[in-house]
Design a protein around this nucleic acid. Sequence first.
DNA 1: CCGGGGCCTTGACGGACGTCAAGTCCCCGC
DNA 2: GCGGGGACTTGACGTCCGTCAAGGCCCCGG
Lengths: 242, 242
Amino acid sequence: MPLREIHRDEISCVRRVPLFSGLTEDQQDLVGALARPLVLSAGELVHGAGERSRRLSVVHTGQVKLSRTLPSGHRRLMRVAGPGQTLGEHGFLTGGPTLEEAEALTETRLCVFSHDDLAALVAEHPSIALQMLRNLGQRLAETERRLAQSTLEVDVRVADYLLDQPLLRETSDSAPATASSAVSPRLRLRLSKKDIASILGTTPESMSRALARLTASGLITVDADVITLLDATGLEALLAQD
Amino acid sequence: MPLREIHRDEISCVRRVPLFSGLTEDQQDLVGALARPLVLSAGELVHGAGERSRRLSVVHTGQVKLSRTLPSGHRRLMRVAGPGQTLGEHGFLTGGPTLEEAEALTETRLCVFSHDDLAALVAEHPSIALQMLRNLGQRLAETERRLAQSTLEVDVRVADYLLDQPLLRETSDSAPATASSAVSPRLRLRLSKKDIASILGTTPESMSRALARLTASGLITVDADVITLLDATGLEALLAQD
DNA sequence: CCGGGGCCTTGACGGACGTCAAGTCCCCGC
DNA sequence: GCGGGGACTTGACGTCCGTCAAGGCCCCGG
């Protein structure tokens, strides 16, 4: 079927996305027919800040960096949207200009919906609005959490960030010597330390020093972008201590 | 009509609220029948943090202080919900426990909806979900803006806060001497400086010094809770500088 | 093979701001 | 009227962290 072939990307994109998870497969296929694919290479912009972009995008593969620029000219990274996540809902909801610049961090495939198409979809399928609500509510809670934490010292914010990261699957190349030997959880930073520093509201220098202090305290070890959590409970204790 | 009399509060509450503005008056009256009134005096809690509150509230009159408590025990004021604004949507959307403590700042009248009733309403009237979406989107944008600003110096955050406040209607008791004499805009702080400091992520002491510096720079004058903006463009320039 | 640029780290320095403390003012209850 | 407590301000002090600078490392292109 040529039509389905042409829209292969869009359909698989729609099927994998929470936003449309309340629909039947047939409905999802119809939605997919409205999506336009967009492929960006690393560094290209989905849209700049302050633009009037008339579209909402769903990330299919890759990652998109969302950053705000203050009147002073300073930029701050707000979040990174990965597969299944959406960007541009503020413009969709308000019709106003974009608040954030959106830049592909890696080669990225997007499914793009025009505001008009999306409005029609939402009107026809209320479950889409509900999913969008859950999504925005989640992001609001997360953003409020970061705001509440913003006055804590850098070490604590870094520790919290590390604890939030997904752990690496441990492929123990050495045979498990004893059944009870606990391996320290490890994780890989998916952003440059410079970008993480921006997310945390600090500088690369302070971030580097914070990691050095956590290492000196025996809480972690750092090997380039791989972090070993030697003492996860110790890291959590940082959050609680005054 | 006794029934309408009994539900007077709920109905007038529903009619004034953006959340239900997409409904006809008849529909709003039906919605009002589901609302339960709740009157709190200053200092009483709508709900504590971490509770499982099964209800979403709309502020009718008064103000409600929403604050988060960090694991360290520090509290931070996140926002103040005034008439027409809602609280408790996170619990409604996720079913999880409350993230914020909600405390009546003044004597406050609320309209309370159970999650079940509200879910039924949303299912029947998609416009409610859309309004909630717009509302959450607005709050998300605002919270992101504050997060991005959180690293700026206190003077700038204070200046930005002042510029965001609604101005007082100038009741010039003295006759307007000349038609061209421009009066400086004035505003009344609707929260204690302590609370404003918490919102801005700083301390009462630093807040007090920031106001003193802005005064010394000739940008404002402070008379208890009334602030006169002597040089609004000078205040805006603070945001852009550096 | 060499040169440049970006990322990261470390050091030195200074300033902004949080903390502690004291003092004033005001309000409210006894 | 008097005492207590909370809001606010001001001062003194210490420190966290942002800035500037230098240097190492790696990658890539000439």
